[in-house]
């Protein structure tokens, strides 16, 4: 196995990781501040991708498509928060799971109704397509490199938002004591809508960005949602730092596992069965990682509470 292949896979893992971060950041914020488990977060990912594909198809502009994705997902998030989610904050987790499961059904079938069952395609714009040569002679697609850049920029932006702005202070205060900040005169229901829409916008952005390297189709959000859950379990609920580190761990484990597990099994098995067993085990690797974290630290790497 050459160094170049390895470096490429590390970059792929990193790219996958930062996209997972965009998903899990919103999810963990919503849980941390409102105490809500939102299964419909994957639907917001899907809405972002569909909005981007539709706008790119109409205008041909990738930047407009991304803005449409952000706007559509944030608007859908705010709407859902006001109509449904708001009634769930005081309910137990079972009700939250069921109501957001119902939202998935409505969003998925609604999207299928509007756009049909066939996947849409979102093209990478010309100025971002093609490979770039990195130090060490590694050829890597510019678009994927851009995704890593955007993901890391969003991470930095979120850290600054949470630690430096007034909204960030309110979010942190909301995490630790919601009655108290309501008593101090913060409009808590407006804050909740903003946090939910912010998380939704991040999911929509991730959907649009990933949509350009996959096909845009109904049901694309749920596999990512479940991976985001794994990330949150590993990183610890409510922690943005945990979400970032967990995402990158999961991204790298998944990508490198697919590369190394068959090779590892080939050491003591014949090639074809090693490929079979290796890839089957590689598909389980991130869940094994999650199990190990659970055994060592049940509240996650950076979780305050279990």
């Amino acid at each position: 196995m050459s160094f170049i292949l390895f470096a490429e896979q590390v970059l792929n893992g990193l790219q996958f990781g930062v996209m997972l971060f965009l998903m899990s950041a919103g999810l963990t914020l919503v849980f941390g501040v409102m105490g809500l488990i939102n299964l419909a977060h994957g639907s917001l990912f899907m809405i972002g991708a569909f909005a981007a594909a539709a706008v790119a198809g109409l205008t041909g502009s990738f930047v407009l498509a991304l803005m449409a994705a952000l706007a559509a997902a944030a608007a859908a998030g705010a709407l859902v928060e006001v109509l449904v989610i708001r009634r769930l904050y005081d309910r137990d987790h079972l009700d939250q799971v069921l109501a957001t499961f119902a939202l998935i059904l409505i969003f998925s079938e609604g999207t299928r109704w509007i756009f049909g069952s066939f996947p849409l395609f979102l093209n990478i714009p010309d100025y971002l397509s093609g490979p770039v040569t990195l130090p060490g002679g590694i050829q890597y697609p510019l678009y994927r490199l851009t995704l890593i850049g955007i993901g890391l920029a969003v991470a930095v932006g979120l850290f600054l938002l949470i630690s430096r702005t007034r909204l960030g202070i309110q979010i942190r205060a909301g995490e630790s004591d919601r009655e108290m900040i309501a008593a101090l005169g913060v409009d808590i229901s407006k804050l909740y809508t903003i946090v939910f829409a912010l998380g939704a916008a991040l999911a929509g952005l991730a959907g649009a960005l990933v949509g350009a390297i996959q096909s845009v189709q109904v049901g694309m959000g749920e596999p990512v949602l479940i991976l985001a859950f794994v990330v949150i379990v590993i990183g610890g609920i409510g922690s943005i730092k945990g979400a970032l580190i967990g995402s990158i761990l999961v991204g790298l484990t998944d990508t490198l596992g697919g590369l190394f597990m068959p090779a590892l099994f080939a050491l003591f098995m014949d090639n074809s069965s090693a490929a079979t067993a290796g890839s089957a085990l590689a598909s389980m690797l991130i869940y094994i990682l999650m199990a190990v974290v659970l055994i060592v630290k049940p509240s996650g790497l950076f979780g305050a509470r279990a």
Binding site: F31, I37, P223, V233, T276, L294
Partner: peptide
């Protein structure tokens, strides 16, 4: 494994383990 935690963690972990079997069945 999952009962070491509770509440929302438990929901996410059982969901993730279910998905693990799904991917295993697909790739085997």
């Amino acid at each position: 494994l999952s009962l070491r935690t509770s509440g929302v963690y438990f929901i996410m972990i059982t969901l993730a383990f279910g998905q693990m079997f799904y991917y295993f069945a697909i790739s085997w």
